[in-house]
Computed example of a mutant assay.
Amino acid sequence: MQQISLCFSASRRLSGRSLAGVVGSGDMEVLFVADGSDTLNVDIITSVDNSSKRWTALFERLGTFGDLPAGQMTIHDFGATPGVARIRIEQVFEEVADA
C-alpha cells in the first residue's frame, strides 16, 4: 500500500461533506469535507505503487475543467482506473455543490 498526499490551490468554497463509492465492495471510495481554506488537500491510499504522477495529472486536469473546491479529500482507490477515479471525485464535488 502506498500513501500519497497532494495539495492544490482551490478557488471555490462549498460547505458540507460527501461520500461516493464503497471500498469494501471492490469500488473506489472518496470522502470530501469542504472547509474555508484556500486549498484542496488530498490523501490517497492506493494499492498501486508509484502512482503519484497519475494522481497529480488527474487533479490538474480536473482543475482545467472547473474550479477545485477547498477542503479535505480522502481516497481509497482499490486500484481504480483513472476514469472511475474521475467519476467518483466529480460525484462528491457535485453532491456538495448541490447541498
Rank of each mutant, 00 (worst) to 15 (best):
F65A: 06
D49T: 10
F65G: 01
Q72Y: 13
D43Q: 11
D43I: 06
V48Q: 12
T64G: 00
L62G: 02
V48K: 14
S52C: 11
G63D: 06
N50P: 05
G71I: 01
F59L: 06
H76V: 10
I45G: 10
V48M: 11
S52A: 15
T74W: 07
K53F: 09
I44G: 04
G66C: 09
L58C: 02
T64H: 04
S51Y: 12
I75V: 15
I75H: 01
S51C: 14
E60W: 03
F59C: 01
A57G: 10
Q72F: 12
L62P: 04
S47W: 07
E60H: 03
I44V: 14
H76K: 13
L58W: 01
F59H: 01
T56V: 11
D67R: 09
R54V: 06
D67T: 07
G71N: 03
L68H: 02
P69K: 04
V42P: 03
S52Q: 14
G66D: 08
P69A: 04
V48F: 13
V48I: 15
T56S: 13
T56R: 13
I75F: 00
R61L: 13
S52K: 15
G71K: 00
R54E: 14
N50Q: 12
T74R: 08
R54M: 15
L58A: 07
N50K: 13
I44E: 07
